[in-house]
């Protein structure tokens, strides 16, 4: 665990608390894409199946359980919110899910020579979760571009997700240099994902940082 990975994880953790705070204190899920949240829940469930078979550390275990539980709760709250107008949540998620699944079937880290059938299915689902996470933010980005009255807290939520991605990139540079650690699937998908946030940070700069306090 290096400092970049840790800061990235903490920023990811903060993003959950920001979104939960928005949902609980404003009692409104306006501006929150149910589709993006459902994709994140799918990402975490598919990626953290190894909870059942591999123990890395208590840190890893507890974070994984929290990520799954928190994203399930967020999906539940947004899906059951009566005041949510999801008219602008119009992204066609099948265009994200199907290509990610197809790509995962062909580009993954399976080792059929060792490990059982179930472990290799987990590798395919792990790759699927990496690809899906890279693009899962797109429905939320589309909503932010369409909605005029995006609340600052939603923007801060997105910013903390972007910081999480940026620090994971630094983490991979560090690990490649000091540990020889190199997972091309995670790194390439991570770069794509971080580039998508560049679009958001332009919006963030224009709509939040340039907006004078009133």
């Amino acid at each position: 665990m290096n400092i970049f990975r840790f800061v990235g994880d903490m920023s990811h953790l903060a993003s959950f608390f920001l979104l939960l705070a928005k949902l609980i204190y404003t009692k409104s899920s306006t501006g929150v894409s149910l589709k993006t949240q459902a994709l994140y829940l799918t990402v975490f469930v598919c990626r953290y199946l190894d909870l059942l078979v591999a123990f890395v550390s208590w840190y890893n275990e507890l974070m994984k359980i929290f990520f799954i539980a928190a994203s399930a709760y967020i999906v539940y709250v947004v899906a059951t919110s009566t005041r949510n107008s999801n008219a602008s949540d119009t992204y066609r998620v099948e265009f994200l899910v199907i290509p990610a699944l197809v790509l995962a079937c062909f580009v993954n880290e399976t080792h059929w020579s060792k490990g059982g059938w179930s472990l290799n299915v987990m590798e395919i689902l792990w790759a699927f979760s990496i690809y899906l996470e890279a693009v899962a933010v797109l429905p939320q980005l589309k909503m932010l571009h369409q909605l005029e009255d995006t609340t600052n807290i939603t923007m801060h939520y997105m910013a903390s997700l972007g910081i999480y991605r940026a620090f994971y990139l630094l983490n991979w540079v560090y690990r490649l240099y000091y540990e020889g650690y190199w997972h091309p699937i995670a790194v390439v998908a991570g770069i794509v994902q971080t580039l998508l946030y560049a679009d958001f940070f332009i919006l963030y700069y224009q709509s939040v940082l340039l907006r004078l306090p009133s």
Binding site: H12, R47, V56, S57, F67, W126, Y168
Partner: peptide, 10 residues
């Protein structure tokens, strides 16, 4: 290293 096969990130 041997740990390269494991996914230790979140």
């Amino acid at each position: 290293s041997e740990n390269d096969d494991e996914h230790d990130e979140l």
